[in-house]
Write a protein that binds this DNA or RNA. Sequence first.
DNA 1: TTTACAGTCAAGTAATCTATTGATTGAAGT
DNA 2: ACTTCAATCAATAGATTACTTGACTGTAAA
Lengths: 228, 228
Amino acid sequence: MSMGPKQAILAEFAGVARALGHAHRLELLEHLGQGERGVDALAVRVGLSLANASQHLQQLRRAGLVANRRDGKFIYYRLADDGVTDLLTALRHQAERNLAEVDRIRRGYFAECDSFEPVSREELLERVEAGLVTVLDVRPQDEFGQGHLPGAINIPLGELQDRLAELDPDREVIAYCRGAYCVFAFEAVAALRAQGRKARRLVDGFPEWKAAGLPVSIESGFRPEGIA
Amino acid sequence: MSMGPKQAILAEFAGVARALGHAHRLELLEHLGQGERGVDALAVRVGLSLANASQHLQQLRRAGLVANRRDGKFIYYRLADDGVTDLLTALRHQAERNLAEVDRIRRGYFAECDSFEPVSREELLERVEAGLVTVLDVRPQDEFGQGHLPGAINIPLGELQDRLAELDPDREVIAYCRGAYCVFAFEAVAALRAQGRKARRLVDGFPEWKAAGLPVSIESGFRPEGIA
DNA sequence: TTTACAGTCAAGTAATCTATTGATTGAAGT
DNA sequence: ACTTCAATCAATAGATTACTTGACTGTAAA
């Protein structure tokens, strides 16, 4: 049952990959990409029982993908480092390139919203510099508070209809949310276009922006817990 | 039991990750990184039964990580694209950064050989330009034939002692093999240093070189099958 | 101290994954 | 047609994983 050093190391790598091998854990990682959170908040957002979420989080911790800290009676989990987002991005790109099934699901659900090319990070930076666009963060308020694109306006998706007045009608809106497959930005763009506004979405979300080393704003005095 | 588009897509991503979640499959991918191979050759090299290797390869194919083609009665598998190597590299880096266990195994087995800093791809290119080093490929002959670094000399590890005369004693040797955890390069460097030669190893192996878009030489008329 | 709550642990069942065995398919050669 | 060989398929037993339930630990507040 013994094996060489290479097999031992490959077994460790395989352990990391297996930790990524469950949709619930990927969704937990997506939420952790927004900032650190308590177990209960994660469980609610991902739709898991508390015990189940706890166990998935511990698998991620054993694989070195997340870390945690205790503060009072809460335990906050966070991504181990920005490299985790890079690994998730590599996984996503691989799946998008070579899995017909992913493409089929994308086309089925996201077809109409996706008909306008998403905006790259570089293009967004240029157009913000030039003062041509409004950057719109459609995530819940607390996620916005833990970090967001500089100069972005936060209007959670549910409030968008009521707060349209806050957006300059003459400027194009570029919306973003949690990541490439978070539906918030898709729906926000669809809603804005239905109102006759010019709107596109950023190609991916906040965690990828941060992992790319681009500047991030944080509200002073944010509360890590609490659902807005 | 139904779920939204995001969950469906995350489940696909998880499937790709799960395909990477077994040491044998990672080793198969490492071998496929050298070039395409038949099922039997892979099974022998990785030490699996034919049926078992076949089934692992089919899992990799379902996940879109490898592709295959039939030629006569042989079926040749290959990596789906160079992005697979990128994903494997991202996985390796993540594990190296955050898993103490990987570090422990490295130290235990590779300590003495690793005491000299590995050479980066950039440094190798510079020193080859300047004519300062001999590049040594210690993989089996057939893997060399399917693609190797330009100007590299191929001496499989087992023949190194007998063919020392082919290496200029006054030039430093930079050895490489299949990848960062392939032991061939470690052992070649150790053997050369034991002979009083100057020798270091390239930081990783041939697949990473190729995936980085650097130039690759291929022997004309190579035979994909056959163990040297 | 007691109570309350966040989170973990332990145990059990159902489902999934792994590796082996032997049968089967598909292409070549006789 | 028959044989041969590469590879896949099918069926199985044993191991691992997922989710639930209920008990337990650690911290804070009454």
